[in-house]
């Protein structure tokens, strides 16, 4: 079942001469874990902004084509209506936390939606626990590390219990360990709660294994869609400059040398297992 569907979506920012995204038609199903990737300035962020109505309601400009999210036509619904269905996590963790304590931040969306206090307390505790930061609940956000801050941002979106969570390069300010933790948290949200995940990411080595679908954008259009294995082995993806995981690169290198592994690996562990298997076999 499609939860996000766009048809020939074209958007131009006010004052811009060329559209930032052009004729984008994508279908994302309920429960998908989608990686959205592509070179800088290819329109990934703009596409993410259309999912919860920041484009066109916050940025104005002209939006053509159709987009439906959770059964709602984005053009006809306000951002705060869409916010109940779509949660957006931004790149810079610092600029999306505005309260003086973590739990107050997590409660922010619920307070805006006028939720009764008792229920709000339960939801906040639940969201903190899901993000693995229950022990930080009273700390001020600016004292936390980038990774912790980003998990607070995730919890604050999660507390709204959205159907879809869109994460726009959530790990670009983090070290690999912090990034890995973020991916684990969102993977759990996807697998346990069935939340549809759309993850914008450049560095695919860590994230690729969780995804079941990859969308590659280039110059404002969708260049490729498919499963991670299809995309990572395609020549076109390499030419666009997709950050193909090293494990898959090794697979291709071996293939050129005449060694073909049974399946296409996307993680180091997979590659190691495949290689071991092959060596034992011989």
């Amino acid at each position: 079942m499609a939860i996000i569907e766009t048809k020939d979506l074209t958007y131009t920012y006010p004052g811009a001469t060329t559209p930032s995204i052009q004729d984008v038609s994508v279908t994302i199903n309920k429960g998908d874990f989608v990686i959205l990737t592509g070179p800088s300035g290819c329109g990934k962020t703009t596409l993410c902004r259309t999912f919860n109505g920041l484009v066109p309601h916050f940025y104005n400009g002209t939006l053509e084509g159709e987009i439906t999210v959770s059964g709602l036509k984005v053009a006809d619904h306000k951002i705060h209506e869409l916010a109940r269905h779509v949660g957006l996590v931004f790149q810079n963790p610092e600029n999306q936390l505005f309260a003086l304590s973590v739990e107050k931040d997590v409660a922010f969306g619920l307070e805006n939606s006028a939720m009764p206090r008792d229920e709000m307390r339960k939801r906040v505790d639940w969201a903190l626990q899901m993000a693995g930061i229950s022990e930080l609940s009273e700390r001020p956000p600016h004292e936390l590390s980038g990774g912790q801050q980003q998990r607070v941002a995730i919890a604050s979106v999660l507390s709204m219990q959205p159907d879809i969570m869109v994460l726009d390069e959530p790990t670009s300010f983090l070290d690999p360990v912090g990034a890995e933790k973020i991916f684990k948290v969102i993977n759990e949200l996807n697998k346990k709660l069935g939340i549809t995940i759309i993850l914008v990411e450049h560095r695919l080595d860590l994230a690729a294994k969780y995804a079941n679908k990859v969308i590659v954008m280039n110059e404002g259009t969708v260049a490729l869609t498919g499963t991670p294995r299809e995309i990572f082995t395609s020549e076109k993806a390499r030419l666009i400059g997709v950050g193909i995981p090293k494990a898959t690169k090794l697979y291709q290198h071996l293939k050129r040398q005449g060694v073909t592994l049974k399946t296409v690996p996307v993680t180091t562990e997979e590659t190691a297992n495949l290689l071991l298997e092959m060596l034992n076999h011989d």
Partner: peptide
């Protein structure tokens, strides 16, 4: 600007009768 974006994304202005976690 980024803050405004994040606020909008978290249902800022959804209800006139805003509640509060603390009292």
């Amino acid at each position: 600007l980024e803050l405004a974006e994040a606020m909008e994304s978290r249902a800022w202005g959804a209800s006139d009768k805003r509640t509060n976690l603390y009292k």
